[in-house]
């Protein structure tokens, strides 16, 4: 074996640095902001930006663990139902006389358990794929919410609970602070830790990861459980902002969350993408939605745009790859 020296410095080029997907998102956010600012002179005012942000941040909490799930090549479409179920259970327990604090703990616990069940089913029944497993639990979880609450609303929470979604700390919305803390935590987990490295490994090649001593099943269960927990966190903020809950809240959240993750550049084939992309996508879709609201675009039109955004953000990389390989031949 002749001795050989390998370089241990990465080559840095400005071209590859600026050709990253995240820059596209930054440009798009700027474009949307310019559009919004031209539609409304108040848009760029601090108070307005702050309140706009508060409006769309609730579901952003689910985006964080969903990044992990999609990175591993899985999907979880039951998150919206978990939001509903933990919100309904929290309200139900509170109405049965449990102190609000404990009711919240119970809500968080329920979400965590729901996520854990998803994870266990996914790893125990590998032949089923996470699509069908979470499809079934999606119906079941919302079904339980309907059984508990029928089609009624439940509310009358204590005042302090309302603050969760509406209050500011030092002029900054509490929900934004909470999101920032979670985002930094999840970003650190994904990019700096052993755990995150293993998640990437699973997404790229689950078999090789297992052969390399990565406990694939354990990590998957943990990530699905985290998704359950964060869905419950979303449930807290959403319920607080709405002041009451119903068994049909948060419907369609799964689409929005998945759209944000995919738009953030996380590949549905697994193993590729970064947390920052998904976070940028949260703000992009949030501002877009705000701007469309300014020009009185209907909620239905928004559905169409969201659906198309999802399709486009998956299709563009696919098509790019296809054309690249065609040119090579």
């Amino acid at each position: 074996m002749e001795p050989r020296v390998l370089a241990n410095k990465k080559e840095f080029t400005f071209k590859s640095f600026f050709l990253q997907w995240e820059w596209l998102l930054v440009v798009l956010i700027l474009a949307v902001s310019v559009m919004n600012a031209s539609l409304s002179e108040y848009f760029l005012e601090y108070d307005n930006l702050r309140d706009a942000t508060m409006g769309f941040l609730d579901k952003a909490f689910i985006v964080l663990p969903m990044v992990f799930i999609i990175l591993m090549g899985d999907i979880d479409i039951s998150v919206a139902s978990i939001v509903t179920l933990s919100s309904v259970i929290m309200a139900d327990l509170f109405n049965h006389g449990l102190p609000m604090g404990w009711a919240m703990v119970a809500g968080l616990a329920v979400g965590t358990i729901c996520g854990w069940i998803n994870g266990m089913l996914v790893v125990r029944f590998k032949e089923l794929s996470s699509v069908i497993v979470t499809l079934a639990t999606m119906i079941i979880y919302r079904g339980i919410a309907y059984i508990l609450l029928k089609d009624q609303a439940s509310g009358k929470f204590p005042d302090w609970f309302q603050y969760l979604g509406w209050e500011y700390i030092g002029g900054i919305p509490f929900i934004l602070i909470a999101f920032a803390v979670c985002a930094i935590g999840f970003g650190w987990l994904l990019h700096k830790t052993v755990f995150g490295r293993r998640v990437y490994a699973i997404g790229n090649n689950a078999t090789a990861s297992r052969y390399s001593g990565v406990q694939v099943d354990k990590i998957k269960v943990l990530v699905f459980t985290l998704a359950g927990l964060m869905s419950a966190v979303t449930a807290m903020f959403l319920t607080s902002r709405m002041g009451s809950t119903r068994p049909n809240i948060a419907s369609g959240y799964e689409l929005e969350v998945i759209a944000m993750v995919v738009l953030g550049g996380i590949s549905t084939a697994g193993g590729k993408g970064r947390m920052i992309g998904a976070i940028l996508a949260v703000f992009l879709i949030g501002f877009l939605r705000y701007g469309l609201g300014l020009v009185n675009v209907s909620a239905q039109m928004l559905l169409i745009i969201l659906g198309l955004l999802l399709i486009l953000s998956v299709a563009i990389p696919q098509l790019k790859q296809r054309f690249a390989s065609m040119r090579r031949i």
Binding site: R197, R198, A201, N205, T207
Partner: peptide
């Protein structure tokens, strides 16, 4: 299929099992 993460660089592959 079982030994390497092909999309990764040499270094990350080597350290995967002993992180």
């Amino acid at each position: 299929k079982q030994g390497l993460v092909l999309q990764w660089d040499i270094g990350r592959n080597i350290t995967l099992s002993a992180l």
